[in-house]
Computed example of a mutant assay.
Amino acid sequence: MTRIVAGSAGGRAIKVPTAHTRPTSERVREALFSRLEHRGYVADCNVLDLFAGSGALGLEAASRGAAHVELVESSRPAAKLIRQNAANLGLDVQVHTAKAESWVTLPPRREFDLVLLDPPYALEEAVLGQILFGLMPHVADDALVVVERAKRSPEPRWPDGLELQDFRDWGDTRVWSAIHRSPGH
């Protein structure tokens, strides 16, 4: 069972798609969000969850007080389930049914302070690099971009403007964090 760890919906269960998703474990979400909150990247932030899958990351951010949360998921059944979970939890989020690589090519409607990417572990590194590059117009200065991958995966290829801050391992999961710095910052 997958639960929201903390915030207004803390302890409440969410339904997860039966196929093609790998929800971030509760342990990893708890550790990740503890670090994000300590750095000031959740409450009152605009948050984007790409490759939303079960929606656990975006819903966790909404539960913990994010100002605005958008989730992008390519699977229609998974996106529908995210919408149902958000309604059941009383969380106001926007869910887009689109591929991440297509969504990042859209004109930006807002700047995000925190971007969470948890792509399928099988996603090719070159595709991840294209998505990170396409993401740049959508992120605010000093925004944090977090990429979750298998521990054995190579470090993502960060586009100009994203500087690696750190990485952490939790079990078989590695999470990289990079900060957006505009030129001259």
Rank of each mutant, 00 (worst) to 15 (best):
A43G: 01
F51P: 05
V16E: 00
V139M: 10
V69Y: 04
A31I: 06
R174Y: 01
A150K: 08
G40V: 14
H138D: 12
L128W: 04
E124N: 12
D44A: 15
F112E: 07
D172K: 14
L81G: 01
D169E: 13
V16R: 03
G134K: 06
D44Q: 15
S177R: 11
Q165P: 00
V47D: 10
E70D: 14
L114M: 03
S25Q: 14
M136P: 04
V115P: 05
P183Y: 09
A87L: 11
N85L: 10
T24F: 06
E163Q: 10
V95I: 12
A9H: 09
H180W: 13
W176K: 05
S63G: 01
L81Y: 04
A126V: 13
P137E: 05
G40R: 06
L59H: 06
R149G: 02
R12V: 07
L117D: 00
R181S: 08
L164R: 08
V5G: 00
T24D: 08
G55M: 12
P77D: 04
Y41E: 01
V145D: 08
W176G: 00
K80Y: 06
M136T: 15
S34L: 09
E111H: 14
V104D: 08
A43H: 04
G65E: 05
H38K: 14
F51K: 03
A98G: 01
D169M: 04
F112G: 05
P119L: 04
I4Y: 02
R168T: 11
P154K: 13
V69T: 11
G184K: 10
S153A: 15
Q84I: 14
A150H: 15
F112D: 06
G134V: 02
G161S: 13
A140P: 11
P108D: 05
L36R: 09
A19V: 13
L117Y: 08
L91S: 01
D169K: 14
R110A: 03
A62K: 10
A6V: 05
A61G: 07
P23L: 07
L106Y: 11
L89I: 08
A56R: 03
D169F: 01
T105A: 11
G7L: 13
E155H: 11
V69E: 00
G58M: 11
S75C: 13
L144I: 13
